[in-house]
């Protein structure tokens, strides 16, 4: 691989050792988790090989977990996508969106390598767990030698491949409030083929119902306006909140409200028009799926 001679790799003994190493050598260090994103960026010369790689595998025992404690869901940054699938998140209908993401994520083998922390830090519109966790209103926990801070995911991801992570920080955890019982979630992604896809558009939904009334709803897309990073469709959420869940309502949200906040791009893969249309369809399908899950018909 390119630049082989120039890079050193550091294997920390503990989290604090890792943070110290980072602090000392930032910004010439890149943490490496699964490596499925980082190594391709180096291979494709999209970034210069860093002077040091900080190997996160030694922190695996410490930072790989899914816990639900005191109404808070905590996911360790080094949890792999496969490990997520073995957790409570794949067994409780409220988190069904995790099952949907998993079903369309990379390929089966890739799920053993890719980590949740790597996914959030990759910070592209194709980071499916960003799209998903935005609707759980998740926060990331950032640690450095100076201490810990928590940032909303929406404030963490700033732009394509750009985050609010300081060079001396690591993401150690993603947290979100345990959703209420009458809620569920969904994730929609499709393309020319079934798997190993970027998705023409991707959409995530969180829906909390009271009877048929939308008590709360959060919706996100791979992109909403301009910037190529996942974001919430806030106007659409606002429109839906408090209303009664009907197909007419979905129709109106998709046709009238969503277009007012959604702007899509044309590239060699497909057109902005089609992406907008598919955003509408995904919105409706995502909501419907989440609804059916709350109601237990799915």
């Amino acid at each position: 691989m390119v630049g082989i001679e120039l890079v050193s790799i550091y294997k920390p003994k503990s989290l604090s050792d890792a943070l110290e190493f980072l602090d000392k050598n930032a910004p010439d260090v890149k943490p490496i988790a699964g490596g499925t994103e980082l190594l391709l960026l180096i291979r494709d010369k999209k970034i210069k090989p860093p002077k040091y790689l900080l190997d996160l595998y030694p922190l695996k025992k410490q930072l790989s977990y899914v816990k639900v404690e005191n109404g808070i869901v905590r996911i360790g940054a080094l949890t792999t996508v496969y490990e997520l699938s073995q957790s409570i998140l794949h067994r409780d209908k409220r988190f069904a969106g995790f099952v949907d993401v998993y079903d369309k994520f990379g390929t089966m083998a890739l799920r053993f390598e890719a980590t949740i922390g790597g996914n959030l830090n990759a910070a592209t519109q194709y980071s499916d767990y960003i799209t998903l966790m935005l609707v759980f209103d998740a926060s990331v926990r950032l640690e450095s030698v100076k201490g810990v801070r928590e940032l909303k995911l929406s404030e963490f991801v700033l732009d394509k491949r750009k985050t609010a992570l300081n060079p001396n920080e690591l993401v150690t955890e993603v947290v979100f409030r345990e959703p209420p019982l009458d809620s569920s979630s969904s994730f929609v992604k499709f393309d020319r083929r079934e798997i190993l896809i970027a998705g023409i558009v991707t959409e995530a939904t969180y829906l909390h119902l009271e009877g048929d009334t939308i008590k709360d709803v959060r919706i996100s897309f791979d992109m909403v306006a301009g910037r190529r990073i996942p974001a919430r469709a806030l106007k659409t959420e606002e429109f839906l909140r408090g209303k009664s869940f009907t197909s007419d309502l979905l129709e109106e949200a998709a046709e009238k409200v969503l277009p007012s906040e959604m702007s899509r791009v044309t590239d060699w893969w497909t057109t902005a028009d089609y992406r907008l249309e598919m955003s509408k369809v995904s919105l409706k399908r995502g909501l419907k799926l989440a609804y059916e899950r709350v109601k237990g018909v799915r």
Partner: peptide, 25 residues
Amino acid sequence: RGECGSCIVLVNGNPVHSCLALTSR
């Protein structure tokens, strides 16, 4: 690039793309 899967081996029992894994780790 982790796409074709023809490099998959088992690392501690897990399927892993050997083209995306670093031996040093």
